[in-house]
Nucleic acid binder design. Structure first.
Length: 417
RNA sequence: GGAGGGAUGCCCGAGUGGCUAAAGGGGACGGGCUGUAAACCCGUUGGCUAUGCCUACGUUGGUUCGAAUCCAACUCCCUCCA
């Protein structure tokens, strides 16, 4: 590991964020001499960011901790174009209304990680739609288009991938990298932003921005990327059965979020503690050394700290408590996800299959039936063997709730009201 | 505008008249082993008021006792030419 002079790069390096840097020495010097202003751009393609975006959010947080100024750039404009990087086919174009709604919803997350304000190192949030939608086609081409060589653009991975696979790449998407390069220049001019960070898939786009800045403004800009995050077994981070691991509590509960981290693979624990928690490095080193089942302690710390950042300390502690009660004491915690049901219909008797669907543990009666037949369905911790079983008020235990489980990990309480 | 190729289940992909709710793989879910891990092994994987019924191979019609498979028109996509 290289030793840096600046707090910023030392922090980034020691916690494993750095994959590639365009000019380590130059950036190190800049970060030592003054406040570095850096930005990361976020697409507005979904209502919430997910775990895959988390590493970059953490980078902005670390930047601020190390005395830099973070800029969160919402891609209100670039989302209208669509980033071809890493996708082998075009996405459906989103409407402007959708983009606007997504943008509003995404913004909330950042307030948990960054301090916004007017001070020199306070974070600011911008939307590139402000300048991109103002552009005049001809003058833009003459002022900036001439700095881009199509020959070179064709060699970029994001483009090459499509061409090699003979997948379509529209001219619209082809322009994405130019717009992203222009963003960097615009942020340099408006806010003195000299560093763009992002995942390694953004490297080409970032370098384009650096080049453009040098050619038009003789600016010295920098790129810093992280490894694209995968688990040790190679799976992309952030995808689970239900879909992405969202950061928004409305889309994924704190409990599920905690469980996601709790189920981290052994070999990822140390790496994730460094990237996704504020756990001191010597403590991480100690936790990493744990063997076998003891490593579960480290996973709980990982889960609780990571959850605290997104959902708050209190929610994280609740999750830890719930998990301990449920998995270690083998009991039933009242903090498990609870679904209300009608007490009236319970009196009439509710079919076990219907109950599993109601609890969200199965998407159809047939799926619930298969779950029962496969021996994975439990009612109050007892395996259900009869698909015709009727649930009645007599099944309500522990405070009048009924516990349904799918497999060992997923539990839901039904509460008659 | 011309010539050719394509559209199949969550995804990839086989299937060219009945044996097809549709091979195979991936993913996912459940079980086993374990530590709420990984790897590995086994099972499941359209829906329903269920020994039956309904829906489904781009859309709409047609041929046929019978169509994912044959025919026609249409929609969308790709490649090459202009």
């Amino acid at each position: 590991m290289t030793e840096f002079k600046s707090n910023f790069l030392n922090l980034m390096s020691s916690r494993g964020y750095i994959h590639q840097c365009s000019d380590e020495a130059g950036l190190d010097a800049a970060a030592t001499d003054g406040i570095v202003t850096a930005y990361i751009g976020y697409d507005c393609t979904a209502k919430s960011l997910h775990v895959g975006n988390l590493i970059s959010i953490m980078m902005l947080r670390k930047l601020q901790q190390a005395g830099g100024k973070p800029i969160v750039l919402m891609g209100g404009g670039t989302t209208k174009v669509g980033d071809p990087s890493g996708k082998d086919e075009s996405r459906q174009l989103l409407t402007e209304d959708d983009i606007e709604a997504n943008k509003k919803s995404i913004q909330k997350v950042f307030e948990k990680f960054l301090t916004f304000g007017d001070g020199p190192t306070d974070a600011i949030m911008l939307d590139n739609d402000v300048w991109l939608s103002e552009l005049n086609y001809i003058s833009f081409l003459r002022d900036y288009g001439r700095h881009f060589s199509v020959n070179r653009m064709l060699s970029f991975d994001s483009v090459k991938l499509r061409l090699d696979r003979e997948q379509p790449l529209s001219f619209l998407e082809f322009n994405y990298m130019i717009l992203q390069a222009y963003d960097f220049l615009e942020l340099y001019r408006r806010h003195g932003c000299t560093l763009q960070m992002g995942g390694s898939d953004q490297w080409g786009n970032i370098i384009n921005g650096i080049e453009l800045g040098r050619r038009t403004d003789q600016a010295q800009l920098y790129a810093l990327t992280t490894e694209l995050l995968t688990t040790s077994s190679g799976a992309k981070m952030g995808k689970t059965a239900q879909g992405a691991v969202w950061l928004d509590a409305d889309m994924l509960s704190a409990w599920e979020y905690w469980q996601f981290w709790r189920n981290t693979e052994d070999s990822d624990v140390g790496r994730f503690l460094k990237l996704f928690t504020e756990c001191p490095l010597d403590e991480v080193a100690r936790l990493e050394q744990l063997e076998g089942a003891e490593l579960n302690e480290a996973k709980k710390i990982l889960a609780t700290q990571a959850t605290a950042l997104v959902h708050g300390e209190e929610a994280a502690q609740d999750c830890l408590k719930t998990a301990t009660e449920t998995f270690e004491a083998g009991g039933t915690s009242q903090n498990l996800p609870t679904i209300d049901m009608s007490a009236e219909s319970l009196k009439m008797g509710i079919g076990i299959l219907e109950a599993f669907v109601m609890a969200g543990l199965a998407s159809s009666n047939s799926e619930a039936r298969r779950l029962v037949q496969g021996g994975g369905a439990k009612l109050n911790d007892a395996t259900v063997s009869d698909i015709k079983l009727q649930i009645t008020p007599e099944h309500a235990v522990n405070d009048g709730t009924i516990k349904l489980s799918s497999g060992k990990k997923k539990h839901v309480l039904l509460k008659p009201v």
